[in-house]
């Protein structure tokens, strides 16, 4: 292994990665990912299916060989000190990472024993976690009989039998109902309060916004934007304004008016009475709606919402799309 390019050791960082690459055949699943995650923070990977989120996490968790680049976890080299890395990390994968044939408590005892607890201590720790995760009543039930939310919680409980320094969570709330999702969020916040660094992947902007100190937006194996949720939103626009008019004929006029005041492109939706725009300044929205009224354009309803992941991607990837096209044109 060539170590000449090793970077400086920054003790503030839990994860430090440079140019991570993973190839599956000719396809670059991860194509040069740089990453700096500070200790004790939550870092969110935001991206659609197949963007390379899971592959990156699996490399950092020592499950996949790295095809290029370097990474350090708490100062330990991912490849050369894999065993030291493993003693720092814990992974909750997308699929149940517990033994479904065993009961909740048996699963936790199993992990506890493997981590070096005595049989008695492993049982004590298991019961403590089950109580804390509201799973006390199903401790002796086989995990395959658990509901989706309970399964997710036992997954996370198994990951923190020995509280890890870094917890990797791969789409921790996908498919959960709102209450279960809130419970998982509470657990993540409690972990961070107690000093654990969390790296999570999500498809929901909302989730990244709620939990993550910093967010990386991933698409096609590359990080296309990185920053705090505030920074990302500022670059995308803080929300989306939807306006529906009473009369389709007044749409061109409304479009012109909104564009002037909001100073942003106005999208015409397939509904001939509807328009939408990404906005960053809510006061201007109020002003624009007022202007519509005074111009005599009747608005039947309007809404102001967070930009959806789709919109984030459209905005952030818009540029790289055109780059691709010029490349194609040149070749």
């Amino acid at each position: 292994m060539n170590n000449t390019k090793k970077y400086e050791n920054n003790t503030e960082l839990a994860i430090q990665a440079t140019g991570l690459v993973k190839k599956f055949g000719d396809n670059f699943a991860v194509d040069g990912v740089d990453l700096e995650v500070r200790k004790g923070t939550v870092y969110g990977f935001l991206g659609p299916n197949g963007a390379g989120k899971t592959t990156t996490i699996r490399m950092l968790a020592t499950l996949l060989q790295v095809d290029g680049g370097y990474a350090k976890i708490f100062g330990h080299d991912l490849v050369e000190e894999a065993d030291k890395v493993r003693s720092k990390i814990s992974l909750t994968g997308q699929f149940a990472s517990v033994d479904e044939d065993l009961s909740g408590i048996e699963n936790l005892i199993l992990i506890g024993r493997l981590m070096g607890y005595s049989r008695r201590k492993a049982r004590e720790r298991g019961s403590e976690l089950l109580q804390a995760f509201s799973l006390g009543d199903v401790a002796k039930t086989q995990v395959k009989k658990y509901s989706g939310g309970m399964r997710r919680r036992i997954d996370i409980a198994a990951s923190i039998v020995v509280t890890p320094d870094i917890l990797f969570l791969d789409e921790p709330t996908t498919g959960l109902d709102p209450r279960s999702r809130n419970q998982v969020w509470d657990i993540i916040r409690a972990l961070v309060r107690n000093g654990t660094t969390v790296l999570l992947t999500t498809q929901y902007l909302d989730e990244a916004d709620q939990l993550a100190d910093r967010i990386a937006v991933i698409d096609k194996g590359r990080i296309i934007a990185e920053g705090t949720s505030g920074e990302l939103k500022a670059s995308v626009g803080s929300g989306t304004l939807h306006v529906r008019l009473l009369d389709a004929d007044s749409r061109p006029q409304a479009q012109k008016l909104l564009a002037e005041i909001l100073e942003t492109p106005i999208e015409l939706l397939s509904d001939p009475t509807a328009l939408s725009a990404l906005v960053s300044d809510n006061e201007r929205v109020a002003k624009a709606l007022g202007e519509l009224a005074s111009a005599g354009i009747k608005v039947t309803d309007f809404s102001l919402g967070q930009p959806s992941l789709d919109q984030v991607f459209l905005t952030l990837t818009g540029q790289s799309d055109t780059e691709d096209k010029t490349e194609e044109a040149n070749s």
Partner: peptide
């Protein structure tokens, strides 16, 4: 409180 207590438990048993 139970959640906090369980998570704050940072006991590290020796490697088996």
């Amino acid at each position: 409180e139970a959640l906090n207590k369980a998570i704050a438990n940072r006991m590290r048993p020796s490697k088996p």
